[in-house]
C-alpha cells in the first residue's frame, strides 16, 4: 500500500458535492412553445479526497464536463452544495470566488482552441500570474521558464506561438499554464482525447508526475475508460446527468455492479481482445437530455429492468465499503 493512499484516506475531503444539480433552459424551437429544459447534472453527490485522482467517465451528454465546471464555479449550480476545503462555495459571489480561483485550474480537451493564438508560449504560461500573484514581470518570466522545463519543453520554444506546436506540445503548454499559480486542484477535461496514440502516453505520464510532485488533487474527465482507470484512484460513472456508480478504480473494473457500467466496460475496444470476446452490446441510444426518461435514467436501455425502474429513481447506496451504486437490482 503506498503512503499517498493512506494519507488521502486520513485527510478530510477537499471537495464535497451534495445534490449538485445544473439545469439549462433554452428557448423552444416552436414559437410560443414551452422552453426546453436540460438537466445536465441531476442530484449528484460525491467527495474528492485530498491528493486523490477522481475519474469521471460517461458518454457525450452525461454531464461529466458540466460537473467539472460546476466544481470550479465556471457554471453556477441550480441547486446543491459544493463544499471546498470546508466552505460552501456554491453560491458565494464572484468576487469571493476570485480569491479561490488561484487554487483551482483546468486543462482543456482541445489544445488548439484553448490557447490564445496571438500570445507566445511564455506569455500564455505567465499570464495567470498577473492576476494571481504579486510577482514582478521578470519573476513571472523566470517562473514560466521553469514550468516550461518542468513540462518537458526546451526553453527555445518560449517565444513561439501556439500554431508552431504539435497537439501534444500544446497540451504541455496548457498544463504549464494551469500549474503556474500553484493550484491545489485541477480539472483535467479529456486532456488526451485529441492526441495521437503515441503522444497520449507522454502526456499521461506528465500528469502522473505532476500529481506526485505537487501533491495535487485531480478530477480526471474522459470517455476512454482504459485511460481513466489507469490514472484514477476512484472512478465515477455518469449517465444522463446522474452518477450511477462510484468505486475504487480496480474494484469498478473487476466488479462493476451497475448494468450500465458493465456494458460500458464490455464496449471498450481493447488490444488484448483478438480472441473476439463476447460483448454485452447495449441496445438503443442515449435518450435526449431534454426528454429525460422517468425513474432510472438508464431503464430504457437496460436489459435487466424490472417494473419499478421506470417509475422510481433508484437511490445511491453504498453496497460495499467505498462502492456505491444507484440501481434497484443491487
Amino acid at each position: 500500500m503506498d503512503s499517498r493512499m493512506d494519507s488521502a484516506a486520513a485527510a478530510s475531503p477537499l471537495y464535497e458535492a451534495r445534490g449538485l444539480t445544473k439545469v439549462f433552459t433554452s428557448k423552444s424551437s416552436a414559437i410560443g412553445g414551452k422552453p426546453l429544459v436540460v438537466r445536465a447534472v441531476n442530484d449528484v453527490s460525491f467527495d474528492i479526497n485530498n491528493g486523490e485522482v477522481l475519474g469521471l467517465v460517461g458518454e457525450s451528454g452525461c454531464g461529466k464536463t458540466t460537473t467539472g465546471r460546476l466544481l470550479l464555479r465556471l457554471l453556477d449550480p441550480t441547486s446543491g452544495s459544493i463544499v471546498y476545503a470546508g466552505r460552501d462555495i456554491a453560491r458565494i459571489p464572484n468576487r469571493a470566488m476570485r480569491a479561490l480561483r488561484k487554487d483551482m485550474q483546468i486543462i482543456f480537451q482541445d489544445p488548439f482552441s484553448s490557447l490564445n493564438p496571438r500570445m507566445t508560449c511564455l506569455d500564455i504560461i505567465a499570464e495567470p500570474l498577473i492576476l494571481h500573484s504579486s510577482l514582478t514581470r521578470a519573476q513571472r518570466r523566470e517562473k514560466a521558464y521553469e514550468l516550461l522545463r518542468y513540462v518537458g519543453l526546451p526553453k527555445e520554444y518560449a517565444p513561439r506561438f501556439p500554431h508552431e506546436f504539435s497537439g501534444g506540445q500544446r497540451q504541455r503548454i496548457g498544463i504549464a499554464r494551469a500549474l503556474s499559480v500553484d493550484p491545489k486542484f485541477i480539472v483535467c477535461d479529456e486532456p488526451v482525447s485529441a492526441l495521437d496514440v503515441s503522444v497520449q502516453s507522454q502526456v499521461l505520464n506528465l500528469i502522473q508526475k505532476l500529481r506526485h510532485d505537487r501533491s495535487l488533487t485531480l478530477l480526471f474527465i474522459a470517455h476512454g475508460l482504459n485511460v481513466v482507470k489507469y490514472i484514477s484512484d476512484r472512478v465515477g460513472v455518469m449517465y444522463l446527468g446522474s452518477l450511477l456508480e462510484l468505486a475504487d478504480s480496480e474494484e469498478i473494473y473487476l466488479r462493476p455492479l451497475h448494468p450500465y457500467t458493465q456494458s460500458l466496460i464490455s464496449a471498450i475496444p481493447d488490444v488484448d481482445d483478438t480472441a473476439g470476446r463476447e460483448r454485452q452490446l447495449l441496445r438503443g441510444e442515449i435518450p435526449s437530455p431534454t426528454n429525460m426518461p422517468s425513474g432510472c435514467p438508464f431503464h430504457t436501455r437496460c436489459s435487466r429492468k424490472i417494473g419499478r425502474c421506470a417509475d422510481e429513481k433508484p437511490l445511491t447506496r453504498e453496497v460495499a465499503p467505498g462502492h456505491s451504486v444507484a440501481c434497484h437490482l443491487i
Binding site: V197, S198, Q200, S201, Q202, L204, N205, Q208, L225, N226, V227, K229, Y230, I231, S232, D233, S249, E250, Y253, I265, I268, D270, V271, D272
Partner: peptide, 17 residues
Amino acid sequence: RAIPKLATPRGQPLYTI
C-alpha cells in the same frame, strides 16, 4: 506498449515513444 490497457496497473509509468 504505450496504450494503457485495462490490465495496466494504476500509476505504473506508461511506455512512451
